[in-house]
Simulated assay, not measured.
Amino acid sequence: MVVVPPFSVEFFWDSSYFTCMFIQIFFYCWYGHNVTSKSQDIGRAVYMSNFYVSDLKTRKALIIFMERSKRPLILRCGFFTVSLATLTSILRSSYSYMAMLQQLYKE
């Protein structure tokens, strides 16, 4: 996109490809972030319920469940955590690479 003339057919195809790739990565990171934030709310929801009025077996199971839910569920893709922070780091790196390539093509 840096070296093709603006408003050309190739520029249109490159920008549409870039938009599609960005939307795919955005959805993965958005839903990964939502899974992590919702998994943190599960333990609090169980604690706020009336678990103490249930029978002993259920109370023990819910206490174990609350202890296990202290660690949030984190989605990973390879060695990357899928979250909005990952999306911003991808965008920063992409912009840095694009700026570097633009400088190389100008010279």
Rank of each mutant, 00 (worst) to 15 (best):
S16R: 14
F65L: 15
S8K: 06
S89I: 12
S89F: 13
S89N: 09
Y105W: 06
Y28T: 03
S15I: 15
L104E: 00
M1A: 02
H33L: 00
S96R: 12
P5W: 01
R71D: 04
Q24A: 10
P6W: 05
Y28E: 06
V46E: 08
R92Q: 08
M98S: 04
C20V: 11
F79E: 02
S49D: 08
S37T: 14
T81Q: 11
V3S: 03
D55M: 07
T36K: 10
V35N: 02
D55I: 07
T81Y: 09
R59Y: 02
D14Q: 13
M66Y: 13
L87V: 11
F26S: 14
K60Y: 12
Y17V: 13
K106S: 08
T86C: 09
M48I: 04
L87R: 06
E10N: 10
S83T: 06
T58L: 10
P5Y: 01
G32R: 03
E10Q: 13
L104W: 08
F12M: 11
R92D: 01
Q40M: 15
V9E: 12
D55E: 10
L84Y: 03
S54H: 10
M21P: 02
G32Y: 14
W30Q: 10
W13Q: 03
H33S: 02
L73F: 12
M48T: 07
Y95K: 13
L62R: 07
S49I: 15
F12T: 08
V46P: 03
T36I: 00
L104T: 03
F79S: 05
T58Q: 05
F11A: 11
Y17W: 14
S94H: 13
I63V: 15
I42F: 14
S93F: 11
L56E: 03
Y52L: 14
K70H: 08
S16Y: 14
Q102P: 00
C20W: 07
G43N: 09
P6D: 06
L91P: 05
F11T: 06
S8A: 08
A85D: 06
V35D: 01
F65G: 04
V82C: 02
V46F: 15
Y105A: 07
L73N: 00
W30E: 10
V9R: 14
M48C: 10
W13P: 01
Q102W: 02
F79A: 02
C77T: 08
R68G: 08
S37R: 15
C20D: 00
Y47I: 00
K60I: 13
L56M: 05
V82Y: 03
I90T: 12
T88M: 10
I25W: 05
M100N: 03
A85L: 04
F51Y: 14
F51N: 00
S93D: 10
F7S: 09
A45M: 14
M100L: 15
Y97E: 06
R92M: 08
S15L: 15
P72K: 04
R68V: 11
L73T: 07
Y105M: 01
G43H: 01
K60W: 12
Y31C: 12
H33R: 00
F18E: 01
N50A: 13
S94D: 05
K57A: 11
F18V: 07
S54E: 08
M98Q: 06
V46R: 03
V4S: 01
T81N: 13
I63T: 13
M100Y: 12
A61Q: 09
R59C: 04
Q24Y: 12
S83H: 01
S89M: 11
K70Y: 02
R71M: 11
Y17N: 07
R59G: 04
G78R: 05
T88N: 07
